[in-house]
Amino acid sequence: MTNPQEIFQRYVYAGAMSRDPDAVAALFTEDGVYEAPLAGDGDVFPRRLAGRDVIRAGMAAAYARMPAAGDDPVDPSRTSFALHTTGDPDVFVAEIDTTLTSGTRMSLVQIFRVRDGLIHHLRDYFAPLR
């Protein structure tokens, strides 16, 4: 897993599509960090998770508070994204406009920092789900 497109697609499949905390955690370095700076107290997603095991546990807890992936999945036909590379080959940005089958829409910006083909730091900017 070396290019932004592949890293992003694996992250989306593990998280948004299948909501598999083990698969999400496996995409991070052992000391990786997931941050959702706009999340607040009581939001589904935590503000900061540091370390692969903490990411796994935090994502499992978040997914448990959400409807099951099959109940309101992402509608790929109404979802789009753009990936932007930067001057740093280990950093890329994803802009995402997603729609769930229920019609719920969400826009996100994610900043990925990669080390040795794994996510080392992910900042996930979105309006938190409640």
Rank of each mutant, 00 (worst) to 15 (best):
T2F: 10
N3P: 13
P4G: 04
E6A: 14
F8M: 04
Q9L: 15
Q9T: 15
R10G: 00
Y13R: 10
A14S: 02
A14T: 02
G15D: 15
A16G: 12
M17Q: 10
S18Q: 14
D20G: 06
D20E: 06
P21N: 03
D22Y: 11
A23Q: 11
A23R: 11
V24F: 01
A25W: 03
A26T: 05
A26C: 09
L27Q: 00
F28K: 04
T29A: 02
E30Q: 03
E30W: 02
V33D: 05
Y34W: 12
Y34K: 05
E35Y: 00
E35T: 00
A36L: 05
A36I: 05
P37M: 01
P37C: 04
P37K: 06
L38P: 05
L38A: 09
L38C: 07
L38D: 11
A39K: 02
G40F: 08
G40A: 06
G40K: 07
D41F: 15
D41C: 14
G42N: 07
D43N: 07
D43Y: 07
V44A: 14
V44M: 14
P46N: 10
P46G: 13
P46H: 13
R47Q: 12
R47V: 09
R48Q: 11
R48V: 05
L49I: 03
L49N: 00
A50C: 08
A50D: 09
A50V: 12
A50L: 09
G51D: 05
R52H: 02
R52W: 04
R52Y: 01
D53W: 13
V54D: 11
V54N: 09
I55G: 00
R56V: 06
A57Q: 11
A60R: 09
A61R: 10
A62T: 01
A62M: 02
Y63T: 10
Y63I: 12
P67M: 08
P67D: 08
P67V: 07
P67R: 07
A69R: 11
A69I: 07
G70Q: 13
D71H: 13
D71V: 12
D72W: 01
D72F: 00
D72K: 00
D72I: 02
P73T: 00
P73M: 06
V74K: 07
V74M: 13
D75W: 00
P76K: 09
T79L: 01
S80Q: 10
L83Y: 06
L83M: 04
H84Y: 15
H84R: 14
T85L: 11
T85I: 12
T85Y: 08
T86F: 04
D90G: 11
F92K: 02
F92C: 01
F92L: 04
V93K: 04
V93T: 10
A94W: 00
E95V: 09
I96F: 01
T98P: 06
T98I: 13
T99F: 04
L100Y: 06
S102R: 03
G103W: 03
G103L: 05
T104S: 08
L108P: 06
L108Y: 12
L108A: 12
V109D: 15
I111F: 08
F112K: 03
V114M: 05
D116S: 15
G117M: 00
G117S: 08
I119V: 10
I119W: 02
H120N: 12
H120L: 10
H120Q: 10
H121M: 04
L122N: 02
L122I: 01
D124T: 01
Y125M: 06
Y125L: 12
F126R: 13
F126D: 08
F126N: 13
A127C: 13
A127Y: 14
P128W: 15
L129V: 15
L129I: 15
R130T: 09
